[in-house]
Design a protein around this nucleic acid. Structure first.
Length: 507
RNA sequence: GUCCCCAUCGUCUAGCCUGGACUAGGACACCGCCCUUUCACGGCGGCAACAUGGGUUCGAAUCCCGUUGGGGACGCCA
């Protein structure tokens, strides 16, 4: 095995859903692995017995899968350096703690949480650094042995040496921390589990992680970890600390800024590619212009060297924009399927949507591979929906819009824009015109888009009005709004019966 | 409070390392015009930034220091 092989890891703790910020961290790790032909490891950090839940674990796995961020080693996949769940790695941590204890680089501490809290409060009140004072450092060996054998609850602390700790960060360059700012932190809790800082180091070593790419909220942990690598005699990985993602007001991204989990964005109708593209732009750029990236382009262009240092504010409008670029480029059948599911879940399309209720044009264009789909009602509607989506074109920017913008194709209680009614349907001349159009539609021979258009334009000529004088009121009468795709296509897709019915009703 | 990180249009960013080609480029949003039966898309144009003070230098967005502002970390959470 080559010592220079790239191995990165994403190490979430299963204490909630996959957050936007964590997803970005996962993405950058993934991109780096895919870019370099390295290995992506997924490790579950569940050393907090209290807060870790199976639901969170499931949610995170599912969100990663949905985003298309796959891993080469980890839960489900397995791998040579497992197990990949920290709660199953106790013996590894235990051995390393014993080694540190034996070499005197760690020691037992019997201070109770209450005592420590006391000390912390005092320090805060006195305006001093909040840190453990190292009072158990000097406990004689016999005393320690006695207390341990008496099963007095205790933790193990790392003995921080004097001096300072330097390391290099790929994003930030050379960094130095004074060790006196660090206190003798806990590496093994009284329940015998390792703490995060310790488990991370042991796992990253044992899993041969070459690059630690994580959020910069971990920066203050890094000197502690560096110290432990050295104390245990292991080589350092390379570090890359990513800036945080902030809310629109530049404070920590939280619920009050809107959706914060990947799951929520999924429900809102964003596509994985759109979300991934946007997330990649938060803290990274390929050059001064490009910002639309397919997944493979992202992999091809990605580089840790071009990661920015300053924190980025999450901007939903930009997300919408990037997402829409991906949405409009979706393969037709995929888009149809996505929109269809949305329409059903929003109750726009009833599950048993009528066989010949609306469509004289249902069979106009059979998507080539619609036959592959097994859902019968989908197969029945896919051709017409495909045409609808086609005429909607770029007007349909995401799945979420489908429910409101396509409703009038499927049911009669679609949204109505009051202003549009007032503007286009309130004139005294309107009823006659609508009736005339209805009559024309009822009598033309072939109900095709082009025929419909010439019939309406001819009618306008006979009435001595402009085509627009007929088109605008018809659009409102048929769709409930003054905004829609090409009116003649809409009429065609609505079908003769519905079109005539709505025009007469509005007249 | 202590320590750390960061600082270019409202927002995401390019440029910074390796000072000069920067009257600071692109994108989102916003505004105007064009296209068009409406809207969207598209095209064209506009608005809009080097936080601040001091150095270094012939020359600073770019290098150094201070200030200010923002963020993070200070747990037997991760």
């Amino acid at each position: 095995m080559s010592g220079s092989a790239v191995r990165v890891r994403f190490a979430p703790s299963p204490t909630g859903s996959l957050h936007i910020g964590s997803a970005r961290t996962a993405l950058f790790n993934w991109l780096y692995a895919r870019k370099t032909g390295g290995t992506m490891v997924l490790r579950i950090e569940d050393t907090d017995a209290e807060r870790s839940t199976a639901e969170s674990y499931e949610a995170i796995i599912e969100a990663l899968q949905w985003l298309g961020l796959d891993w080469d080693e980890g839960p489900i996949k397995g791998g040579a350096y497992g197990p990949y769940v920290q709660s199953a790695r106790s013996v590894l941590y235990h051995n390393e703690v014993e080694r540190l204890l034996a070499s005197g680089q760690a020691y037992h501490c019997f201070c109770t949480p209450d005592e420590l809290e006391e000390v912390r409060k005092e320090a805060l009140a006195a305006g001093k650094p909040i840190k453990y004072d190292g009072r158990c450092r000097l406990l004689p060996a016999e005393e320690v042995a006695a207390r341990v054998s008496k099963k007095i609850p205790h933790v193990v602390r790392f003995r921080v040496p004097p001096g300072s700790t330097r390391f290099r960060d790929i994003v930030r360059g050379e960094l130095e921390f004074a060790n006196e700012e660090l206190d003798d932190f806990v590496i093994r809790k009284s329940d015998d589990r390792p703490t995060y800082n310790f488990a991370v180091v042991v796992d990253d070593v044992k899993m041969k992680i070459s690059h630690v790419i994580r959020g910069d909220d971990h920066l203050p942990n890094t000197p502690k970890q560096v110290l432990m690598y050295r104390a245990m005699g292991y080589a350092l990985p390379k570090f890359a600390h990513l800036s945080m993602i902030l809310g629109s007001d530049r404070t920590r991204l939280s619920k009050r800024h809107g959706a914060t989990s990947i799951q929520e964005y999924r429900r809102l109708g964003y596509t994985p590619d759109g979300l991934v593209n946007y997330l990649a732009m938060l803290g990274w750029s390929a050059d001064d212009k490009t910002e639309f990236f397919t997944r493979s382009a992202l992999i091809e262009k990605f580089s840790l060297k071009r990661v920015t240092k300053n924190p980025a504010a999450f901007d939903v409008e930009k997300l919408d924009h990037i997402n829409s670029m991906h949405f409009v480029r979706l393969p037709p059948l995929e888009k149809v399927s996505l929109v269809y599911d949305r329409l059903v879940s929003e109750h726009i399309v009833p599950p048993d949507f009528g066989v010949d209720e609306w469509s004289e044009c249902r069979a106009v264009q059979e998507p080539a591979d619609a036959g592959k789909l097994s859902d019968e009602s989908f197969r029945a509607e896919a051709p017409r929906l495909g045409v609808i989506i086609n005429v909607m074109g770029q007007r349909l920017r995401n799945v979420a819009e489908a429910a409101t913008r396509l409703a009038y194709f499927y049911k009669d209680d679609y949204p109505r824009n009051r202003d549009a009614y007032v503007k286009h349907l309130s004139g005294p001349e309107v009823p006659d015109r609508l009736d005339a159009v209805a009559e024309a539609l009822a009598t033309i021979e072939t109900f095709k888009r082009t025929e419909i258009e010439s019939a309406v334009r001819a009618l306008a000529g006979r009435l001595g009005v402009s085509a627009g004088d007929l088109i605008h009121p018809c659009r409102v009468a048929l769709t409930g709004d003054e905004v829609s795709p090409d009116l003649f296509a809409v009429i065609h897709l609505l079908g003769r019966r519905k079109s005539v019915e709505r025009l007469r009703k509005a007249a």
